[in-house]
């Protein structure tokens, strides 16, 4: 692994300033679970690592019935899974986050890190898109909010611009009744990354109708092929012919 300098800004503004100053050679670290692996494999060789872990409040989760759920980017998967408001009002998110990897990865990895990595094999993206999540990004110069769906460009590619930091994810409170499902297909081992993951949300009129009228949200996240020589998603017919069973209505 390359040598690097390590900074721990105490505010988002400071972090933005570090990013601007070190432009190309800096990487942000939040939980670090993914960044570390890439650095060990020498796929990323930043000379400056800027940690967001010591910014007060950067891991908070709050809920307001009007405003919805606001998750700061530094919140860990496990915090989201265990948050009472998530469990009560966003059962799809609870179901998704409790299935991400294992507890000790969820104890470390943050939602901001997950989304910014743009890894199509991970679970949260599809469910958040299905819930119409929007994200807020900021830099020294500007702040912008966009639907999460627009953020994902391709495998490991996002719309994160130089100098930007993802600071918050907002999920509006869904109307009831709500039908939902998150399933993933694990080809080999229960501890594997999913080959395909599908998150589905059904609202109002769609509920109770036939399955094909359902408005399934699909994202780039649901397509993934692990190894170059292994068949990709098109060889799994249920992906294209049927939606997952709707077993949950709240």
């Amino acid at each position: 692994m390359v040598k690097f300098d390590y900074f721990e800004p105490k505010s988002v503004e400071q972090a933005c300033a570090f990013l601007e100053r070190h432009a190309d050679e800096a990487k942000l670290i939040a939980g670090g679970t993914a960044l570390l692996i890439w650095m060990r494999m020498m796929l990323l060789n930043p000379h400056v690592v800027v940690s967001l872990a010591r910014i007060p409040g950067f891991d908070s989760i709050s809920f307001d019935p009007k405003d919805g759920l606001r998750i700061k980017a530094g919140a860990r998967h496990r915090d989201i899974e265990l948050d009472p408001a998530v469990r009560e009002h966003y059962p799809l998110l609870y179901e998704t986050f409790r299935k991400v990897a294992q507890p000790r990865i969820r104890n470390m990895g943050t939602i901001g890190g997950n989304l910014c990595q743009g890894d199509p094999l991970t679970d949260p993206g599809a469910s958040l898109i299905a819930m119409d999540a929007e994200i807020t990004l900021t830099s020294s110069k500007a702040k912008r909010t966009l639907p999460l769906e627009k953020f994902f460009v391709d495998y490991y590619q996002t719309d994160l611009r130089p100098g930007e930091i993802l600071i918050e994810i907002r999920v509006p409170l869904p109307a009831r009744p709500l039908g939902w499902a998150h399933i993933k297909f694990l080809p080999r081992s229960q501890e594997d990354f999913a080959t395909v993951g599908v998150a589905l949300v059904l609202r109002g009129n769609a509920l109770g109708k036939r399955r094909r009228s359902c408005a399934a949200k699909r994202s780039p996240m649901i397509e993934s092929g692990r190894w170059r020589r292994w068949p990709r998603m098109k060889s799994i017919p249920w992906m294209t012919t049927a939606a997952p069973p709707i077993t949950n209505v709240t």
Partner: peptide, 27 residues
Amino acid sequence: LIEGLQFDEGRPVNPNFSDYRIPSMRD
């Protein structure tokens, strides 16, 4: 059912535990 190393021109493509899976407790 689980394990498989893929070679590409003699080079192992997945020489690590996230791509070469071994059975976990749940498998």
